[in-house]
Design a protein around this nucleic acid. Structure first.
Lengths: 204, 204
DNA sequence: GTCTATACACTGATAGAC
DNA sequence: GTCTATCAGTGTATAGAC
């Protein structure tokens, strides 16, 4: 059984590692930077996690499962399909709001090391995205929603949910630089509503 | 006046630098990696561009202006507003198709160094996004398009155009892993059409 | 302009005191 | 478990031959 003290330091490291790895990626991140952020010594990083790669793996694994665990709520529900989609929108937007860099981090690291990470992704994602497409196609078959390209719908759907948080820094600079106020113009509720409208228009 | 030989090597470096910087970012990229990619010696990098930072600046500047220059086509045209939007969609999708990492690169680097890059972004973007919002709001005023939140529309619009290319590696793995064929299921034309449908539904 | 050799700082990682 | 000191390897950058 772990002691409270152990958890504290280990989790301090994990939190710091998450922050730094998400910002700079595997190769760009510096162990010193992680240690400073966690307010501990560099050597402790190697004491808890043997190497940079191992620490990164832990962070990446955690990010992946959190990322896809939101999809469970959607897949397991017994609500009507469109209600499930709406609920999923609420959940995923709230999730991104809390972890704005999550999506970017996963995409970027997968893009850089596709082979290395393949198994992890598949393990975490199994029965997630796949099930969503399946459910969509079933819903189209039995007439619950309008017929459309399920894959393309999924892409558009994920785009609308994810990109605003990825590109927030850019939007912020761009809008603020021209007198517009991002904090005022953008809100999670507005975004949710607009994505729901997209669903209504696309799936009827 | 530059000689042809000079341009050749300098551009070889720029191409290689673009590739490596986009993949790993400013801090993750290695000069050796850039030199290898350009098939030249490491010392030559410093001969043409004095430092890593200076080389990065050149790459980032080029990326930014290319990224926003696509918007010019939109802003300067005298076509009806919706036709301009449709033309912009065609252009930006073709552009991302050629430079899939461009959007990610800019977003990521702006996110990491907001202060450092502020002026460059503003210089490159001036009268671009701003003008687009302006044009949209004018179009709503004179009844050419349906009234809606211009900022939120812009976010959704950019999301639909950019994210599919950012997340392509993830989508690819996810779909291929479950029997679906990304290369078959996804095409630029399908994406263009779906975004145009979004425009129709949103702006009437 | 292009290469080799090298200076010098920084990085991940380990040893050893406490 | 936590720290300081330190090593080997790699990184950016420069000097100098051709």
């Amino acid at each position: 059984m772990k002691q409270l003290k152990d958890i504290s330091t280990e989790e301090k490291i994990m939190e710091a590692a998450k922050e730094v790895f998400m910002k700079y990626g595997l190769y760009g991140a510096r162990m010193q930077d992680i240690a400073d952020t966690a307010k501990i010594n560099k050597a402790l990083l190697h004491y808890y996690f043997r190497s940079k790669e191992k620490l990164f793996d832990k962070v990446f694994e955690g990010a992946l499962s959190k990322y896809f665990e939101v999809m469970d709520v959607f897949a397991n529900s017994e609500l009507p399909l469109k209600k499930r989609l709406f609920q999923y929108i609420d959940n995923i937007i709230d999730f991104y709001s809390e972890y704005p860099q999550m999506s970017m981090f996963i995409i970027k690291e997968i893009g850089n090391n596709p082979e290395l990470l393949k198994e992890k992704i598949q393990a975490a994602k199994k029965n997630k995205t796949h099930r969503l497409i399946q459910v969509l196609e079933e819903g189209m078959k039995n007439g619950e929603i309008k017929k459309t390209d399920a894959t393309l719908f999924l892409i558009n759907f994920q785009s609308l949910c994810s990109f605003p948080f990825l590109a927030a820094p850019m939007f912020k600079h761009s809008l603020n630089a021209h007198g517009k106020d991002w904090e005022k113009d953008f809100s999670n509720d507005k975004l949710k509503k607009s994505i729901k409208t997209f669903i209504e228009n696309t799936l009827g």
